[in-house]
Structure formats: structure tokens, C-alpha cells
């Protein structure tokens, strides 16, 4: 939300978040190294590094992917979402250590260029068990690199939100590639049921969380809306909590109706920053505040308070008795609409 370009807009929460992440990384790497040196001391340093950083990266990726659906299920997980991109960039760095060490270990000092060797040393592309698993890991690392490199809001603004989001949806492709990289690679000979069970558990949890959260949202999307003379019935005024909103669906997209200072206003639900659900936000200091990163909009006109320039669409409301109705035709973003008095 700053006007000048800053690498990271540090605040106490982000620093704490990153501190906890560094702590977890140190705990993991030390734990892995200590256990390996005490129970399997004949390891080589390169193998230790490759395995420690690789397994750490996959653990981090699993936790990162859980954050989204967890916040859908319980709002108290929101603080984890706030600085998730730092988590992602750190995870990429751990994966990069694993990837670069592996390339150096297995493909350099030979008779072929190391990057070419990744793709050509094993040519069994038409087999499942013999599939060149390192290619899958390499492609996943490229995707994670592109995501980490464009994680700054600068790219969000300059790549267009649609392109940026499409690129960052590729995390799901990267996840699939990494799981296959593990099961068609290391797990083909490190066959301990412990490893199988752990990664299997992680994948099951993520899939289950996403499908559960997804179907919860489907119910909201498919809720029937009753229409009278072009007005949609939303709810009764008492259903809306003070300084909070009720959401309804208009023309396929959600809309948020806020109650504040004895008034009602309606704005488009999608925050201009990263698509956060404004309807799950709160009125703070007279502004609608997005629950994801705290972006703000004035309820009367859908505009961000100066000096910010983001705008969301606004809607007409009417009150019949204590019943709230909305006109589903949206006004252009930033159009002032007089709030209706309760």
C-alpha cells in the first residue's frame, strides 16, 4: 500500500512471522542432521544436505497449501495468510538448495552440460517406474522460482492481476510435480513405509482440506436468491452484525452489505489487491477493511481513502420494513451511493 517502491513493507507482525519461519527451518535442519549423524553416521555431507533441504521444502509446501483452506474453515488462521508469500519465497529457497546441490552432485563434472544432462541422462520417458524423476523436480523448481521472483506487489500491478494469478495458480502443478518427483525418484529405493506414510498423510490432508472448504463455498455460491421486480432479497437487518457484512450473490459474483453507524452500504465482495473477501472484513475507522492484508475502502463510494486509488463497484440498496433488498446491477467502481438509513 506504499507509494514508493519498497522491497518489503516491514512491520512487527511480518518480522515475527519470518522469525518463526527461520526458527522452524533451523529446528528442522538440526533435527534431521543430528538424527542422521547419530543413527546413520556413514552418510555423506552432500546426501545429507540434499535430503534435509528437499524434505524441508516439501514439508513447507504442505503447510503453505493448508493455509488457504484453513482460513475458509476458521477465521483464526488469518494471521498465517497475511505473510504467506514470505513463507513461499523461503520454501523456494530451501527447494533451490536441494535442486542446485543435486544438479552439482549428479550432473556436473561429466561429459555433458549439466542442464542438458538433467533431461538426457535418463531417456525412459515412456516408463512409469523408470521415468526421469529429476526432470519433474527441475520443472517444479522453475515454477516455484517464477512464483518467488514475481511475489512482490510490483509484479501484481504490472503483470495484470489475471496473469499474475494464473502464474501463481501454477503452485498446484508444482505440487503435483513434486509429489511425483518423490514417488518416482527417492521412494523407488528409500522404501521405508515411514516416508511413504508421512508424505501420503500430508497429501491426503491437503486434498481433504481443499475439497471440504471447496464444497462449503459451493453451498454459498449455489444458494437460491429470491427476486422481486429486479430486486434481490438479501436478509433482514438484524441478521447483519454491527460493523460487519452479509454476503449475497449477484450476477455470479458475491456482494457485501455492510451495517455501520445506523446505515447500510453495498460493495463488490472482491478486494482489488489480491481478491480477498471484503464481506468477511470489518468496518475499522469508518473504512471497510479487507481481512487478508488490511486494504481499505470507504463504504459510501467504494473508493480507497486518499492517497490510495483502488476502487470497487457499489450497489443500490432498499429497505422494506426490516428486509434488505439489493439491485444486482453494479455501478462503475468508485461510484458514490447514498447509504440507506435503518
Amino acid at each position: 500500500m506504499g507509494l514508493d517502491y519498497q522491497l518489503v513493507l516491514w512491520n512487527k507482525q511480518k518480522k515475527r512471522y519470518d522469525l518463526v519461519l527461520f526458527l522452524f527451518i533451523v529446528i528442522y535442519l538440526l533435527g534431521f542432521a543430528v538424527v542422521t549423524f547419530t543413527t546413520n553416521a556413514n552418510t555423506s555431507l552432500e546426501t545429507l544436505i540434499i535430503r534435509a533441504f528437499g524434505s524441508l521444502a516439501i514439508l513447507m509446501l504442505h503447510i503453505i497449501l493448508m493455509i488457504g483452506p484453513l482460513t475458509r474453515i476458521d477465521k483464526r488462521f488469518m494471521p498465517l495468510l497475511y505473510n504467506r508469500r514470505h513463507f513461499g519465497v523461503l520454501m523456494f529457497l530451501m527447494a533451490a538448495v536441494h535442486g542446485v546441490f543435486s544438479i552439482i552432485q549428479f550432473h556436473t563434472l561429466g561429459n555433458v552440460n549439466p542442464i542438458v544432462s538433467i533431461f538426457t541422462s535418463n531417456l525412459d520417458y515412456n516408463s512409469l517406474t523408470n521415468f526421469p524423476f529429476q526432470v519433474l523436480g527441475f520443472l517444479a523448481l522453475i515454477i516455484l522460482f517464477l512464483m518467488a521472483a514475481t511475489s512482490h506487489d510490483f509484479w501484481l500491478a504490472n503483470l495484470s492481476a489475471k496473469t499474475w494469478k494464473a502464474l501463481h495458480m501454477a503452485v498446484y502443478l508444482a505440487y503435483t510435480l513434486v509429489i511425483l518427483h518423490i514417488f518416482l525418484g527417492a521412494f523407488q529405493q528409500e522404501t521405508s513405509p515411514l516416508l511413504l506414510g508421512l508424505v501420503g498423510l500430508g497429501a491426503t490432508i491437503i486434498v481433504a482440506l481443499h475439497i471440504f472448504a471447496g464444497f462449503k463455498e459451493v453451498k454459498v455460491d449455489q444458494a437460491k436468491v429470491s427476486e422481486e421486480d429486479g430486486w434481490h432479497y438479501v436478509c433482514s437487518v438484524e441478521d447483519i452484525k454491527e460493523n460487519r457484512a452479509k454476503m449475497t450473490t449477484c450476477a455470479g459474483e458475491r456482494v457485501a452489505i455492510f451495517k455501520y453507524e445506523g446505515k447500510l452500504s453495498a460493495v463488490h465482495n472482491v478486494c482489488r489487491h489480491q481478491g480477498g473477501p471484503l464481506g468477511e472484513g470489518k468496518i475499522v475507522d469508518g473504512c471497510i477493511t479487507c481481512p487478508w492484508h488490511g486494504y481499505q475502502y470507504l463504504p459510501g463510494n467504494g473508493q480507497s481513502p486518499p492517497p490510495f486509488t483502488e476502487k470497487v463497484e457499489t450497489y443500490n440498496l432498499k429497505l422494506v420494513g426490516n428486509k434488505v433488498y439489493i439491485d444486482p446491477k453494479a455501478h462503475a467502481p468508485g461510484t458514490p451511493v447514498d447509504p440507506i438509513k435503518i
Binding site: F32, V35, N42
Partner: peptide
């Protein structure tokens, strides 16, 4: 939640490390 997560992180490190086959 973060405390639980920290324990999980350590636990996963231990399990992955123990799951390795013996080195020659």
C-alpha cells in the same frame, strides 16, 4: 497452533531422518 506446528516440524525431521536406509 504454532507450538503444535513446531512439534510437528521436529517430528517430521526425525521421521524423515530415521526413514533413510543405512549408508555403506
Amino acid at each position: 497452533f504454532i507450538t503444535i506446528l513446531g512439534i510437528v516440524v521436529l517430528g517430521v525431521a526425525i521421521i524423515f531422518a530415521l526413514g533413510q536406509k543405512p549408508f555403506k
